[in-house]
Every structure is written in C-alpha cells, then in structure tokens.
Write a protein that binds this DNA or RNA. Structure first.
Length: 471
RNA sequence: GGCGCGGUAGCCAAGUGGUAAGGCACGGGUCUGCAAAACCCGCAUUCACCGGUUCGAAUCCGGUCCGCGCCUCCA
C-alpha cells in the first residue's frame, strides 16, 4: 500500500496517485507579509514541510510553490502607517519569514512567487473569466466573480451560499456586487490604497486576494496539479474561490487533493493578542527555546487534530530530544571505537523493523504518533543492545545512518556544529579528571558545578567524561 | 442556525470490533565516589456520561453533557 491522504474535497482518505508518476506538484498558501508570523502560522508551514519531506522520502520529486501575499489591506495599511513604500515594508517581513523557516528547519519550496510580481498574470486570468461570462465589472471599476455562473460552487466547503446574508462582515467597499456571495477579483483603487495600484483594462486598482493563488499556482504547476494545502480556515471562502476561479477559467479540475491543517490553540484557548497567549517564533526564542524544540512540538500532533500548544510541551520536547541526541551520540562513539566486524544481526533487525513501522505510519495520512513511537521504541532497543554490548561499530554506523535517514523527514535531530566546547572547558574537564583520580571528590564536584554554570553537563562514563550542552 | 472537529493516565498523544502504543512527569531499583545518562520495575480493570447492538466496544448505533473551529480576505 502506498501513501493515503484525507482529501477535504471528498472528505475521505484516498490513495495518493500523482498526475505524473513520481512527481508531485503542490501549492501551499503562504504568509501575508505584514508582520512576524506566529506559532499558529508555523504549525501549518511545519505540516507542509513534513508533507514535502515525506513525499521526497518516498521517492517523489516534489515541486512546491508557496505564495507571498505582499499586497492586501494589511500590507498597504502597514506601509502607509510607517510612511514607507509597500515594497520596503513587505521586504522586511519576507526576510523575517525566511529566517524563521530556517530556524524551524523548514525546507525551501521550489518557488516563492510574490503577488506583486504576478499582477499581469492575474489580470490575464480575470480577462479570461470575464470573456467566459464568469465575472463582471462593476460601476467603480472593480471586477467580481459571478458565483451563479459556477454551479459547483461550495463543493469543497459544503457551504450553501444561499444562506449568506449581507452583514457586518461584508466589506463596505464592495458595493457593486450582484450577489453578496460574489467575491472581488479586482478592486478599484480607493484612497486607502495610497500610491499602491496597477493599471488594468478596468482602470487603476489592485488584485483581490483569491486570484493570486489561482494565477500563480497554475502558472508554476499547470492547470491541474496534485496537492493544495492550507489552514482549515482557508477552506471557505479562499479555497472555494480558488476552485471557482480556476475551474471556470480552464474548464479543468484544479486540484486533485486538498489537505487542510487544523488550528493551534494555546493552553486550550484560541491564541489572541488580548489573551496574552500570542507567540511569534521570535518570542519563543527569546524565552530560550530552540527552533527544533518548537518544531518537535508542532510536528508531534496529527495535522488534522487541533494542537494544544503550551510552554511545558516545549520543555517536554527538550527532554525527548535530549534522549534522541544521547542515543545517537552513543552510536557515534561506538562507530569510532572500531569494535567487531560487519553489521550485527541486532542492528539489521532493528533498522528494518523500525523503517517498516515508520513508513506504515506516515503512509497513513501522515500519522506521526506511531511513527514517533517507532523512533522511541528504536532508541530504547538500541540503548538496551548497547548496554549488553550487542552492537558492532558497523552496526552502530548502520543505525546512526538510519536515524539520519528518518531525520530527512523529522528534521529535528541535533545538528553537530551546534556544540563545541572551547579550550577552557576542555582544561577544566581534564583538571576534574585529575582530581577524580586522586579521589578529591569535593574539588572535582566544584568544577562540575562550574562547568554547569558555563552551560555544560559532564557525564562520567566507562569511556571517560562526556560533555553535553545544558540548554 | 449551517458546516466541521474533539473529549483516552498529572500533561501531550496513538489506537475505530478482540481485550489500552509512544513521549514528558512521577515513584522504586541496577550502575556510579556522588551525580548524569542508560537499563529494569511500577504508573488508565479503563477510554466524558447514559442506554443499545454483539460472544466481545475506547472503537458500531441512539441520546445527553462539555470544549473548540469556520460561516467573505485569519494558517
């Protein structure tokens, strides 16, 4: 059996078969670059990263596109508030976004198209929609999609638009609409837009939000592609509108598999600035947590399950990761010790058993919990085998490379370059060893305390002292 | 009101008909100069509640209670 995904379009778990064998084309709704992204946003991006990494792990070539929304009400408002150009304003948050991706070890997509670089593509798409009778121009020069021209509207979200009523949440500037459910493809310029505008066949204005995803996804991935992801909140109206725009324009199915990520809550409550439980990634780094600890927490709950994020879960992640790191270090040390010949049967067996469980779990709609259980079962069995001296250096090398292989999907193993004790630390460790040989425990313990204050934990092993970073 | 999700040990979290994975925390032990790490043992007779189906249910059906999300530009 191969990979299966829950497809929002059919509301069932389906076998995954890409359009082109061996190749997956996926589109991911990216950030609106008006502020630092928050931990909830990253929940979605980490999920998409897991998806991408696992598809690659299973041998697919992945072509991923993530858009950057750099023109909308919020970016325009932000730029005007600060009196800088839209480009200058969004450039800052684009850069911050990529820094955050690196912190969380999120792999880069193949393309990050910015909306402002593709306004021409959007205009062309809107023209097609008008020509085919799916869109109309209002008196003020805005263009709206005509929902009534697309009978399948609602098929993704199962929303019945006849129940929609004009109300508080219907934006004031959209007066020219024939039906409240119609949505803007192009917005005529108004004063709040300042100097942000593009020329179009309908006059000066800017694109609506939904159209960018249709235009850019189809430009880079073709009129029909394999996977489209996003947060659950995007199902309606954003993705519903994307389907309408794209399929009305091309007459072809737009996306084959829709995958949506559930929300993240903090301490059981919706994250909001007023509740004081709003975290950007940077907030967490300031509190001393690392990107991989955050990644571990975000990856650990199934993507269709709402994730209850807490600071104590980050502490738990830290300890769990230390456990992984330590076993990996034991394996490395054994590799260097050149013990035994060839790969022992225990190692072979553990690797094949773990890999089977790992794949079986993740094939099943990215079921991470059993896959993580496979990892921790492996660690326990490896430690056990190490304790009874049942692993050879070649076996350790095999196990170590298997951990590295799994980490192509997990992306949370320790990066070696992160820790190197300096000369002073080395000298102290040696001094302590000298004292310990003299059984001068009191002085030796003082040095141990001193090292701990310097950020290093000393562990005495039969093979000598081992240093571990205290975080 | 419409659409959808969930309630499993102190916390996080799998399991969708065959008798409760895994992680963190916690208690005891082995090892250790003491620690740390590792390992061993223990830690839900029970899966929000009430009925029902079944030889058998956390898993299926009906009902109740509770929490959460979306419903026009929020991942």
């Amino acid at each position: 059996m191969g990979i299966r995904f829950f497809n929002t379009l059919t509301r069932t778990i389906m076998d995954f078969e890409p359009l082109v064998p061996g190749e997956v084309r996926m589109y991911t709704c990216g950030p609106t670059v008006y502020d630092y992204a928050h931990i909830g946003n990253f929940r979605a991006y980490v999920f998409e990263d897991l998806l991408r990494r696992y598809l690659k792990f299973r041998g697919y070539r992945v072509i991923q596109v993530m858009n950057l929304t750099d023109v909308d009400d919020k970016t325009i408002r932000g730029a005007r508030r600060e009196g800088v150009s839209l480009d200058e304003f969004t450039a800052r948050y684009k850069q911050a976004f990529f820094e955050d991706l690196d912190t969380l070890r999120i792999e880069r997509a193949e393309f990050y198209p910015a909306a402002t670089d593709h306004v021409g593509d959007m205009i062309a798409l809107i023209e097609t929609l008008i020509r085919k009778g799916h869109a109309y121009v209002s008196e003020d020069g805005s263009v709206y999609f005509d929902i009534s021209s697309f009978p399948q509207y609602g098929k993704l979200s199962c929303v019945d638009t006849s129940g929609l009523k004009a109300g508080a949440r219907v934006v004031h500037d959209e007066y020219g609409k024939q039906d409240v459910a119609d949505f803007a493809l192009w917005k005529a310029w108004d004063e709040a837009d300042g100097d942000v505008s593009w020329e179009s066949p309908w006059g000066r204005g800017r694109p609506g939000w939904h159209i960018e995803c249709s235009a850019m996804s189809m430009k880079y991935l073709g009129e029909t592609f394999d996977i489209h992801t996003g947060g659950i909140d995007n199902i309606f109206p954003h993705h519903e509108n994307e389907i309408a725009q794209s399929e009305a324009a091309t007459g072809k199915p737009f996306v084959r598999y829709w995958l949506h990520c559930a929300h993240l809550v903090v301490e059981g409550q919706k994250m909001s600035k007023s509740l004081g439980n709003f975290f950007t990634l940077r907030d967490l780094l300031k509190r001393g947590y690392s990107g991989r600890e955050v990644r571990f927490v975000l990856i650990g709950t199934h993507y269709r399950q709402s994730l209850n994020f807490t600071l104590s879960s980050l502490d738990a992640a830290r300890n769990a990761l230390a456990r992984i790191d330590d076993t990996r270090r034991r394996l490395r040390e054994l590799v260097y010790r050149r013990k035994g010949h060839g790969v022992d049967d225990t190692s072979k067996h553990l690797v094949s058993r773990s890999e089977e469980k790992f794949i079986q779990a993740l094939d099943d709609d990215l079921n991470v919990a059993p896959a993580l259980a496979a990892l921790f079962d492996l660690l326990r069995d490896v430690n056990r085998a190490l304790d009874r001296d049942a692993i050879t250096s070649d076996g350790a090398a095999l196990l170590e490379s298997f951990l590295t292989k799994m980490d192509r999907v997990w992306g949370f193993l320790e990066v070696e370059s992160e820790e190197h004790p300096d000369q002073e630390v080395h000298a102290l460790v040696q001094e302590r060893e000298r004292l310990r040989r003299k059984k001068n425990w009191a002085e030796a313990d003082k040095i141990r305390d001193r090292l701990l204050r310097m950020g290093w934990i000393v562990q005495d092993t039969p093979e000598g002292p081992r240093l571990r970073r205290a975080k």
